[in-house]
């Protein structure tokens, strides 16, 4: 059974007097432990679709079901907190917090505080190979290390679905490959569903499935 699926998801935005349709009825699903690469040209609606999968936007029409429950406008933040982990293109780490604190803060937001939060943060920081740099601030880490912290933050708290937006866009090729391989290994090991929106052909090599989106529809 899929951990996340969408039925006929449509999304339109109003620009001035005009309505622009970005997504035109997408049916999509992903299972636990599955890695999907979501590809498409710029402006195809990938990021809008990822935002809908991530409960950041709601569809104009259609339905998103996460862990068997339909997503409703009123519980978006609660679902993000409970079921989703994000990795962003720009890393989006908190600059004044160390690597460990970045992860720990995300756990605090998810309701895991105190000693349990610290233990879980240390577990995932070590899992991404940054145990020796856990007390470094983001400015003292390389791009690849920052993305590892971002991955640790997404993994922390056992969210069953991980969503990544162009995770290798700001990394050089070799580092990007290392980060992707590590991301794949951890997602598989912990049986998480992983959806990666990307332009990077390397992502195909770690994905179980490639979904292509063009002009707002899966092709």
């Amino acid at each position: 059974m899929s951990i996340l699926h969408t039925r006929n998801v449509q999304k339109s935005f109003t620009e001035g007097r005009e309505s622009v349709t970005v997504l035109r009825g997408i049916d999509f699903s992903v299972e636990r432990g599955e890695i999907v690469s979501l590809e498409g040209p710029s402006g195809s609606g990938k990021t809008t679709f990822l935002s809908i999968l991530g409960c950041i936007l709601t569809p104009t029409k259609g339905e998103v079901v996460i862990e068997g429950a339909p997503v409703a406008e009123k519980n978006l933040a609660a679902i993000r907190k409970r079921s989703l982990g994000f990795v962003f293109q720009q890393f989006n780490l908190f600059p004044s917090l160390t690597a460990l604190e970045n992860v720990e803060y995300a756990l605090n937001v998810k309701g895991m505080r105190g000693k349990n939060g610290r233990i879980e943060a240390q577990r995932v920081i070590e899992a991404v190979g940054l145990g020796d740099r856990q007390n470094f601030l983001p400015r003292d880490l390389s791009g690849g290390q920052k993305q590892r912290v971002a991955i640790a933050r997404a993994l922390a708290g056992n969210a069953p679905i991980l969503l990544a937006d162009e995770p290798t866009a700001n990394l050089d090729s070799a580092v990007g490959t290392q980060v992707l391989e590590m991301f794949r290994a951890l997602a598989k090991q912990e049986n998480r569903a992983l959806v990666i929106v990307t332009h990077d052909p390397k992502v195909r090599t770690i994905a179980d499935r490639v979904a292509k989106i063009q002009d707002g529809a899966l092709v």
């Binding site: 991530g54 950041i56 933040a77 609660a78 993000r80 907190k81 409970r82 989703l84 982990g85 994000f86 962003f88 989006n92 908190f94 600059p95 995300a106 937001v109 998810k110 933050r153």
Partner: peptide, 13 residues
Amino acid sequence: IREFGTVKAIGGG
């Protein structure tokens, strides 16, 4: 503002 957006994106209210 971006950091506050991140807090919201990861489930914070």
